Amino acid sequence: MSRLPSEATEAKRALRRSLLTGRRARQAAEVRRLGHALAGVVARLPELDGVRSVAAYVSVGGEPDTGPLLDLWHARGVRVLLPVLLPDDDLDWAVYEGPGSLREAGRAGRMTLREPAGPRLGPEAVAEAGAVLLPGLAVDRAGHRLGRGGGSYDRVLTRLARTGADPLLLVLLYAEEVRDTVPAEPHDRPVHAAVTPAGVRWFGRR
């Protein structure tokens, strides 16, 4: 017997549709410009001083552009872990070695991703990171992150909690995607801050 979607689940779906429509309307030039601004904000975060390993991701579509930030960290000698999507939607990890180290990875019925081509380090490698950048569509003042609904990063957050790792959790967004409230469920784990091209909004842990 199938379970009916909860009210929060339905609210999440509706909000995702609205936010994704807004992202699709952004011009590529604006996405690139804001990506450089976002990298500048992250680069100035004192909370990341001394962090030598981070887990990040390669942006797709209208997501805030992570390319400038990845290249900045790589140039500074920071070890950047990037995800590799597994068939069960869990995430493996590999080290970013510059733009030429990425390859396109098509998934049936999904958008084409760009993933690191280097050796796979295993799903547990994320626990080595001092900071984890999470994709999202919105976040609220309690730090509840609205993802795309695939559950990959819910698994990452569960894995971090299980291993006792305590990295800084940052979600990258556009300024208008920081909201008063987003639908949340008991299993949702809050992030510490939202980083936008306009600045940082902290929800806990400085």
Rank of each mutant, 00 (worst) to 15 (best):
P64N: 01
E10Y: 10
D71L: 09
R33P: 04
S101H: 12
L19F: 09
E7G: 04
L38K: 07
G77D: 12
P119L: 09
A75M: 08
G204L: 14
R201S: 15
G22R: 15
L168S: 07
P135V: 07
R159W: 00
P119I: 06
L157P: 01
T9K: 13
A56W: 02
G204A: 15
R114P: 01
R24W: 08
S2F: 13
R44I: 04
G22D: 15
E104G: 15
V60N: 11
G109L: 10
P83K: 08
D88A: 00
G61N: 10
E63C: 14
P116L: 04
A165L: 02
A37W: 00
H36F: 13
G118N: 09
A184N: 01
L102N: 07
E177K: 13
R33E: 13
L86V: 02
R16A: 08
R24C: 08
L86E: 14
L91T: 05
R189W: 08
L20C: 04
A39E: 05
K12M: 04
V84I: 15
S152D: 03
R13N: 09
V80M: 03
D92W: 10
L134S: 01
E128F: 04
D49K: 12
D166A: 15
A14S: 14
T158F: 06
Y57E: 01
P87C: 01
P83H: 07
L133H: 04
H74I: 00
L160M: 08
L20P: 02
A127E: 02
R23A: 07
A142K: 14
L113G: 12
P135F: 04
A198T: 13
G164A: 10
H192V: 10
A108G: 04
G77K: 13
L70Q: 09
Y96H: 07
L4C: 12
R155W: 01
A14C: 08
P116I: 03
P64Q: 02
